[in-house]
Each structure stands twice: as C-alpha cells, then as structure tokens.
Write a protein that binds this DNA or RNA. Structure first.
Lengths: 192, 192, 192, 192
DNA sequence: CATGAATGAGTTTTCATTCAT
DNA sequence: TATGAATGAAAACTCATTCAT
C-alpha cells in the first residue's frame, strides 16, 4: 500500500524539521537523527530522500530563501509607486514574522554557513543581489545619483538590524525597526 | 625545547592558530588537530593548556574582542570633540585591518556561534552594549532627542556592512564603507 | 543481519561479554572494544545500546546481583523450617557455580569498584542489607538474643571465604566452604 | 646543593602520597600526576625514583603489607601463651587504626588489584599464608584436629569483616568486631 | 636533584551512512 | 516505502613517559 504523494510530503516535513532543529540547536552542526526525530521518521529515511545530510541542509536553505522571496513578491504586488515599492521591500524584509527569533537565528546561521559551503554562499549571494537590484531599481527614480549609496545603506541597515537582533535578549520591535530604516533613507530621497 | 615561560607563548600561538583555522575553514567546526598543526604542536598540548576544544575557542573569541576593544580605545584617544569621537568609533569599527576577509569571517562565525554558546553570547553582548553605549554618549550632544535612533542606525549599519562583506567575492572598500556611515548620520546631526 | 528484536539479544550478549572481559582482565579497567570483541560486535554498538562504558558496567553489575538474587530465591523455595532456610542461604551464597573463579573475581572487583562509584556502592549495599535481613529473619527463632551476632558472623564469613578464594591458586572446595560456615554457626543455634 | 638523604625522603613521601591518592579516588586507577601533586613534586620525579607507575604502586602495596606486618609482630611480642597469641593476632588484624576507612579501602582495592597484577597477587598471597600459618601455629595446642578449620574461620571472618566494612556508611565498631571473632572461635577451643 | 614542556599511543565517544528485511 | 541494525571513520580527550635544561 504505497501511499501516493508520500515523497513530497516527507520532503516537506523533513525540510521543516531541519529548520526547526537548526533553530533549536542554534547551529548548523546538528544530527540527522535529531532532524529525523522532529519529523517522526527514521534517519535512514532522510538519507533515502535527500542522499546526504548536506543536501538536506541545502534544501532547507533553499526553502528559507524561497519563502522569503515569496513574501517579498507578495508585498510588492500591493505597491504601485516607487515610494510604495521601496516601503514594501523594507516591510517585507522586516516583517513581523521574518523578525521572529527562529527566523533571525536561522538566517544568521546560514550566513555563517556560507563561509563554509560554496553552495550556500552562491544561494545567499543570489538573494542578496536580487534584493539589492530590486532596491536600486525602485530607488533610482527617487534618489538619482545617490541611488547606489541609498541602496547600500538600506540593504546593510536591514542586515545589521537582523544580526543585532540575534544577540538581544529582549523581544525586538519590528515596527520600530521598519520605521528606523524608513526614516534613515528620507534624506536620500529628499536630496534628489 | 623545554624552555621555561613557554606557556604564555604557546597560549598566544594556539589562540592565533585557532582564529586562523576558523577563518580558513569558515566554520567553528574545526579539529583540534588542525589548530595544533597551525601552531606546530601536538593536539595534546592544546588540551594541556586549554582543557578542551570549547575553552580554546572561548579564549580565541575573547582575544578577538579584546583586540578590537584596544583598537577602539586607541582610535578614541586621538579624538577630542564629540564629532571626532563619533568619527573615531566608525573608523575603528571599519578600519582597514578589521575589514580583512579573515576578521570579517571570524566575526560572522562568532556571531552565529553565539546562538549556540551562552558564554559566547554573553561576551558578544557585552561588546555590543559597550560600543552602543559609547556611541550614544558621544552622539547625545550632537543629536539630542534623536540620539537613540542615530546610535541604532550607526551600530546596525556597521554590523550590516560587516555581514554583507562576508558574502561578497570582490574585495571590499573599507574607505567607502566608512564614508557611507558618516554620510548616513549627517542628517541626525543636522537635525539637532 | 538486521533482524528485529536484536536489541534485547545484544544487550544480553554485551552484558555477558562485559562480565567475561572483567573476569579475564581481572579489573574493571577494560576497553569497550574488548567487550565488543567478545560480543562479536563493533564498539559503536555497545555505545549505541548503553550510552557509555560506565553504564554498560553498571548494567553488568546489576545483572550479576540479580542473577545471584534469583539463585537465592530459588534455593529458599525448597526450604521450609528456619533451619532449612538458613542452610539454603548459605548454600546459595556458596553454591558451586557462584564459587567459580570468574564469579568470585567479578564480585571482588565490583566490591572494590564500589569504593569508586556511588551507583555501584548503593547497589551492593542493597544486596548486602537484603541478605543480612534474610539471615536475621531466619536466625531469630533459632538464636534469640544472639541473632545479631550470628547473622554478622555468617555474613562476614561468607564474604571472607569469597575474598580469600580470589587469592588462591588451587581450586577451591565449595563443599568444604559450606560445611565450614554451617559448623561455625552451630554454637549460636545451640545456645538458644 | 644536593640534599643528603633526599632520595629516601622522596620515596617515602611518594609512597604515602600513592596510598592517600588510592584511598581518595577509591581505585588503583589513579594518575601519576595526582600522586605527585599530593607529594608536592612533579610527576617526572615520581618516574625518576620509581621508574614507572606500576612500580610505584607495587612499592605502596609492599609498604602497606610491611606496616601491617610490623603491627602484628609488635602485638605478638606482648603475648606469651597460645591463647594470648591468638588474641593478639585478632587484635592486630582488627586494630582500631587498621580499621579506618582509608586502610580498609586500600586493602580491598589491593585485593582486587591482585586479580590483575601477578606481582601484587604474590605479595598478598605471602601475607595471607604467613598470617594463616601463624594462626595455625598458635591454634594447634588449643584446637587439636580442629586447627585447620578454626584457622580458616578466623582468617576468613577477619577478611569478611574487612570487606563488609568497605561497604558500610556508618562508622564501624572495631571493638565489637574483635569480640565477635573471639567469641566465634571459643567453641573450637572448647572442643579440644 | 628537579621540573616544565611536550607528545605518542591509546581509548572513549559520536554520527553519517549503509543495508537486509 | 520505511526502518532497525550495525559499523567505519573520525575526533576529542587522557596520561604515562621522556627529555632538555
């Protein structure tokens, strides 16, 4: 009685379990058996579907990035003017749910992991470049020759807020973070 | 080779070797034998002097932080006015030698590690808070009620530039980075 | 080879192998790999099932004690009068198979080990107290106010015979040992 | 300035430190460095004087035995009749200071060690045989054909009391122990 | 005489991975 | 499809022992 669509279900479950385990342990240095435990399957099954631990982790990273990408796209859809688009990007990056301890932690861990894994590095670079390119595209009509600078500031500021978040004990205020970034770019818009 | 006073020398060498190994491998997940190899000693010696791998890594983190702290203090000494002090802080954080691939990589890796190790987390928190407190202190006469915001922006921006640096392939321009931050806070100063 | 239900079999085999290794080496200071060798499995498997070397040794000790306990209970079943019960206890403690070099050696080693391991100490204390309590219970109707003394003598004598056995080269005579103890308590019975 | 008689002093100190360490750790499985620490010297010195760890432990065992032998001889000197001699032997074996936790523990540990070390086994066998021979010698005029049995009972009882002592938590009563043994052999004397 | 320095040789422990069922 | 069973390979850690000074 082989269940139809089991493969798909198992892959999804295992990826979710991987992210959960990474967040729980606070490191990429986790055991396959722990992941499998979270997914309520044997660790042999994880190998069956993903071939190896590192491929499973790759898949989890890819999932995190694609999830984020979808959130950004969704947010962008509701915006029309460049101003709105920029605001949308900031809101998407610093959205309440992206700002949860778990997500922040996972991002940081993957960033560090990218120092180690060329594969991860490439994936993250694609994401950073795409976001940066979006930012520049929507900032250009607003900032003119300051565009490059403004994009760099916004992008870095967002990442910086993220990384700091990882160190804090107190609950972060996503709303304050968004405001901070928006205020910060005002001068670049004004100068145009 | 048994000359007395070796202990101090070995400890320093081993700490340096640890940082080098972390940077080389791009992860905290390194072998004691690799560290020892870089220090040209047996791995048993590393255990002899530090007790365990994690204690050696702690020591390396502590060293990185204290090195950074000394650089900051040195830079601050040459500044007198609040403006100069703030500039000094930015310059120290984004100094050419702090901006090397190795250092950037080590910082990022330790940031991620802090998700895992309470000890590391505390050490990094102390550093972040101290820097932030310095920033606020010198920004206050310049920014008034915008101080909190300005300090947050500067601090986060610096961290963000750092983290992004870790993803880049092209050589970073430390000078451009410093200028970026300095320009970015101009509006906060002007508004006072 | 992966047949289900192996776990129980392996645990038993590994415990037996542990006792055998202890007896062979004459010390508790044995290698997991030697134990595993006797059980024809990898040392990793020993860790898989028992977690650590000391837990495996604990389990072996527990097994030895429980085996002994069962032998005592079995012997007691065939006795009805207090006299018979006391004889049974002595016979059980100094039974031919308990008196083999391997068992004697293991007991002595565990006794010494109990100086080191609180866990082992507690287990052995329970056994000693239970046996002593049994002895007193059945001696009381026979010895009256001399019960305490008689129980102490029998218990100590048995242990002493055991410990001496460990030092001998010549094969011990279990039968002679049993007679010795039985004769020794006669006076305590008579005095009642 | 080589100090005269240093060698002798160091050997004594190291042997004492060895016994102390064995008692403290409750096992023969101790570190040379711990012994050296107790003697306030470097572990290299222990090797200098004893060649190896096992030779140092041998020496400590030899010392324990010879100390005990001296105590027995001293006690025997004050006795004249066979009765007194037997009493002396019992008193010497169960003397207050031989009955201390440390001594009891050391004896037990050495007994177990003798399962492992042929050297230790031989030393202990010599001691047991000598004591047994003494016992028989003085018991013969008192017990006649029961001598063998009586000697076995006394010897084993003493060892048994010792081994049980090692398991107890409550402080033992050496006096009670001596009385117990003395009462126990009365019947053997009477029967003669 | 004495030791700080150093290490080789082991031993435990961990885990991804394989495989028969 | 799924897993219990098993292990090889690697890594941390320990410690007796050696040696130059």
């Amino acid at each position: 009685m082989p269940k139809i669509g089991m493969e798909d279900f198992r892959r999804k479950t295992l990826i979710a379990a991987t992210l959960k385990t990474i967040q729980e342990k606070g490191t990429i240095d986790i055991r396959v058996s722990d992941i499998a435990g979270h997914a309520n399957v044997s660790s042999a099954l994880a190998h069956h579907y993903f071939g190896s631990k590192s491929q499973l982790i790759q898949a989890a990273l890819r999932h995190l990035l694609s999830d984020f990408r979808l959130a950004v796209l969704k947010e962008l859809k509701n915006a029309t003017t460049p101003q709105e688009k920029v605001i949308s990007l900031i809101d998407a990056c610093l959205a309440d749910d992206q700002f949860s301890d778990e997500i922040v932690s996972a991002w940081l861990i993957f960033y560090a992991y990218s120092q180690n894994s060329m594969e991860a590095r490439k994936l993250l670079q694609v994401y950073v470049r795409r976001l940066q390119s979006n930012l520049r595209y929507y900032l250009r009509p607003l900032c003119g020759h300051k565009t490059e600078e403004a994009a760099e500031v916004v992008g870095s500021l967002i990442d910086g807020i993220f990384i700091r978040q990882a160190l804090r004990i107190e609950k972060a205020d996503a709303n304050y973070a968004r405001t901070l970034v928006k205020e910060c770019i005002q001068p670049y818009l004004a100068r145009n």
